[in-house]
Design a protein around this nucleic acid. Structure first.
Lengths: 164, 164
DNA sequence: CGCAGTTAGTTACAGTTGTAACCATTTTTG
DNA sequence: CAAAAATGGTTACAACTGTAACTAACTGCG
């Protein structure tokens, strides 16, 4: 009997709800700024802005999303002319994703919108508490994601941007 | 240029990924224990274990889920005989949700499975850091959810179980 | 070389979700 | 007290998602 109130307020229910309102607000802010861009689109774009010409597999790992979802996200980005798929000459299974001019140009405004959303989300939260929260979420992800899925992510994504 | 690595590791992308693996593991553990119960089912049940006979509206607020989703979740719980819908005599629009014997009996095992999942998720995370993380997530939820949606939640749900 | 096993990416399909329209009941208010 | 507005809940529909099956290309071992 006694443990249910604790469980009801535990991470299980909490993360999901919060993730959802967060995603919703991100998408709203992009839409208000005149973009047909969602959080999923943005996650792909942000990695390309840092490192153009990644293949879809790598984007899957960085984004922590399933390959079918990345396929569809890139379909959408490509149809909106933010990126193009270029078959890799060295391994023709790979499709390398390159930003178009439009894709590069959108960086400034979309990043600004993401920052704005993060500001809205973190009103009244101390910097160091936010850092702890992110570290905890990352650790949970590592604890629960299956090994295979993690490897690449661990060594490439997180270390690469450790300073955050 | 400089801010993208920070943004890529910000809460936006993080919460969603972590919420997903968390939900997946919860569902797996329920399934392994022989239950056709998902996180969404459990969230409804946990509030009923604390306070039987809530109506769907209240469950929506506590669960932070849309009313159509609650309708379907309760459809499923009812078809599995964990709960029954009882029209409210005082206001016949309301349907009060009551646990069946089966629903009450499942509490012990399902709570144990949820605890197990939380343990798996939080390996290597200090208690106080976890508390900070939960508080941050809760604050973000409050910052972003629309007023109306929050009111009830604020006064009933969170305060009710503040000690967590 | 050649065939078995992998791998990157796509497609098909079934299940889930969210929005909006809806019904029934209650509340408001003119 | 009747009509209009609001509320709890359901349903219909279109969009999205994940799983599995698929294609095309590469790798490795005989």
């Amino acid at each position: 009997m006694l443990e249910e109130p604790r469980l009801a307020q535990s991470l299980g229910p909490y993360i999901g709800k919060t993730a959802k309102v967060m995603e919703k607000r991100v998408n709203e802010n992009f839409a208000l700024a005149g973009y047909e861009i969602t959080l999923d689109h943005w996650i792909v774009l942000v990695h390309l802005w840092m490192d153009d010409g990644l293949n879809q597999k790598t984007l899957c790992e960085f984004a922590g999303r399933h390959k079918t979802k990345i396929t569809r996200t890139i379909d959408s980005l490509e149809s909106q002319s933010y990126v193009v798929r270029v078959p890799d000459k060295d391994d023709r299974r790979n499709k390398l994703i390159y930003l178009t001019h439009k894709g590069k140009k959108a960086q400034k405004e979309l990043s600004a919108q993401m920052l704005k959303t993060l500001d809205e989300a973190t009103i009244g939260i101390k910097e160091d508490e936010l850092d702890i929260c992110k570290r905890v979420l990352h650790q949970i992800f590592l604890n629960l994601a299956d090994e295979q899925h993690i490897q690449h992510f661990l060594f490439n994504s997180y270390n690469r941007n450790k300073k955050d």
